[in-house]
Amino acid sequence: MTNIQERRTKPIITSKEIPLEHPNVKMKAISKKKNYFIKHWPLYSMILPGVLYFLIFKYVPLAGSVIAFQDYNLFKGIFESEFVGFKHFENLFTYPEFSQIFNNTLLISFYQLLFGFPAPIILALLLNEVRKMVFKKTVQTLLYLPHFLSWVIVGGLVINILSPSTGVINEIIRSLGGKEIFFMQEPDYFRSIVVGSGIWKSVGWNTIIYMAALAGINPQLYEAAEVDGAGKFRQAWSITIPLLLPTIMVLLLLQIGHILDLGFEQIYMLLNPLVTETGEVFDTYIYRVGLVGGQFSYTTAIGLFKSVIGLILVVGANKLSKKMTGNSIY
């Protein structure tokens, strides 16, 4: 109440006007802050929905991670379940296939980064050079399409295409006189199939952001380069790529944060007992143990482990990128 009256009667006090040793300095500083908030409260209230969203849906559930240190029982709840310390983490690290799963996850992720990440950039660069608008738009639309199919459908398609009895690929191999290959049953092919089908599904969609960045490049730069006698490749190398770099770096950093999240659906759809040695990843393991076996605490521990690795990687990569290119996400 006093604040409001104060504000009505006096002009806003700036800190310069108050001697620092004044006994009321603290109170005044707060009231100054308060004043600021009160003056702009309509603006501040606009953050509210966003803040609430993150608090309620992102931060509060974080507290649920505490069950990683408990023997969580669905019916006792968080507060009455027994604490067991690091038991579940010990179980995870002593699990005989732990290193296998860890390797698979890292390797598939690494391949996705190596082949899947540049794919939309290259595609966007290629599309950018297309001059016939009709052709460009048609191709773009066709490339977006797979994004809207669920993995259940794409997985089924992949299995059918690679099927030894009815698949197109094996039909071709047979007609060339070869012997059919059981692609889905060979551990050696599994990672390539995962990465390949992943690229096929998402490459078109992922070009959108690069296309937008490309559209923002000043055409005068290209004109100037042409006048200087630069060819298409020179232009791409010296203008397009440097100007795309900030976008690329930000997306790369975000991707690195998710290095242990591979998207459960895709791998689950393609996985079978013959390829678990190269295909089982954390997400599918969590599904098998957690939801089917009901081991909530154990799987929370795995999730927590994944998050910590992700955090370390993203902070590290961000630091590195800041040093090397000057781009960073925060």
Partner: peptide, 15 residues
């Protein structure tokens, strides 16, 4: 078996 589902029929054995 619940804690180590790989010991079930659909785990190590089927592999």
């Amino acid at each position: 078996l619940l804690e180590r589902p790989e010991l079930q029929k659909d785990g190590l054995w089927v592999e």
